[in-house]
Design a protein around this nucleic acid. Sequence first.
DNA 1: AGCACTTTGGACTTGCCGGTCCATTTCTGG
DNA 2: CCAGAAATGGACCGGCAAGTCCAAAGTGCT
Lengths: 204, 204
Amino acid sequence: MRDAPTAKGRATRARIVEGAAGVLREQGVTFTTLDDIRARTGTSKSQLFHYFPEGKDELLLAVAQFEADRVLADQQPHLGCLDSWESWRKWRDVVVERYERQGDQCPLGSLFLQVGRSRTGARAIVAELMRQWQAQLADGMRALQAGGLVSPALDVERASAALLAGIQGGVSIMMSTGDSTHLRAALDDCIERLRASAGDRDRT
Amino acid sequence: MRDAPTAKGRATRARIVEGAAGVLREQGVTFTTLDDIRARTGTSKSQLFHYFPEGKDELLLAVAQFEADRVLADQQPHLGCLDSWESWRKWRDVVVERYERQGDQCPLGSLFLQVGRSRTGARAIVAELMRQWQAQLADGMRALQAGGLVSPALDVERASAALLAGIQGGVSIMMSTGDSTHLRAALDDCIERLRASAGDRDRT
DNA sequence: AGCACTTTGGACTTGCCGGTCCATTTCTGG
DNA sequence: CCAGAAATGGACCGGCAAGTCCAAAGTGCT
């Protein structure tokens, strides 16, 4: 049932996932029932179980994957070519803007907390997301190094890990406080350190 | 009922909170029922509602407060006197050790996600925890400044916000990946930057 | 058109779990 | 030792939400 036989089926499945993602963002996993999803997506109970035979968990997992894909996509094209200070700045702005708009809705955090226990799949999704995210940050740092904008002595692995951690923490703090100060601080602090590790030329 | 009339009552209430905290860590909020808590704490249903008349939410909130108090307490006495590089190092080790031991059990994160929607109280607890935590980090940085170990030009507010974000993110990444690399990276990176902002003397 | 398969509708079942209630026991103060 | 309050035990209730099932409608292929 992963890929439905007919086009109509595939469309319905996609509609369910997308609609479910919306409901989940608004209400949180805990307070979302299959009936809510049914109502939002204009489907019947049997459809839900037709496309997700293993029930709610399977659907939640599909939504988690859907959201995870969006996280990186939303940062493109900037995340993909972090080879100048200007591109880093733009990327930073996109990240801040995206998460501020999202506000206190945490599509992934809560999802994997719920599903994580029962299905190991959820952890894998998040872990893979983190891996790719960090890899792209590391690529960007190496691009700066290649351009002579950052010291070759910089420990790229560690710096990218720290930056990723800062983002995650910034976002999760924003979830509880509604304030993006920490996210901004983490991003700016890390980027500024990259700058400091260069010579002082090209401070744009 | 906040503070029970008799000593026995107070003891029971405390036993419930503590036991509930244990169950919640192990199973997560979603999969924990009042019966689980009842079993663990050797109490009866009526006791639960006797001490927490508003039901599960009230109990969850009490546990959240209990856990929040522990977070800072576990970092003492180091967090309280971050006035030398040595004390920062010790504190860093304590944080890493504490969260590695905790592993993938997230006492607070999941709690406030659940309760946060229904009761605003949970957010307040987390927000207050973050405030105090960051304040103590900022104090530590100012102590370093006072001792001439760190440049007076350092933006303490931003640096402490970034550090806190890094810790939070490091911990939450560890929740999904089981790996403390990011937490360590965030701590070490931030502390190293503090060092770099000083003159180079006293690099112990 | 006709057959097989997919998709859809929605009533129904089932079990769980938060919450209620009252009876009983244990404390405490005088 | 006694009254009144606090603490405890546990049976019971009611609602909700996940999951089942079968019949009906649509779809595509020959």
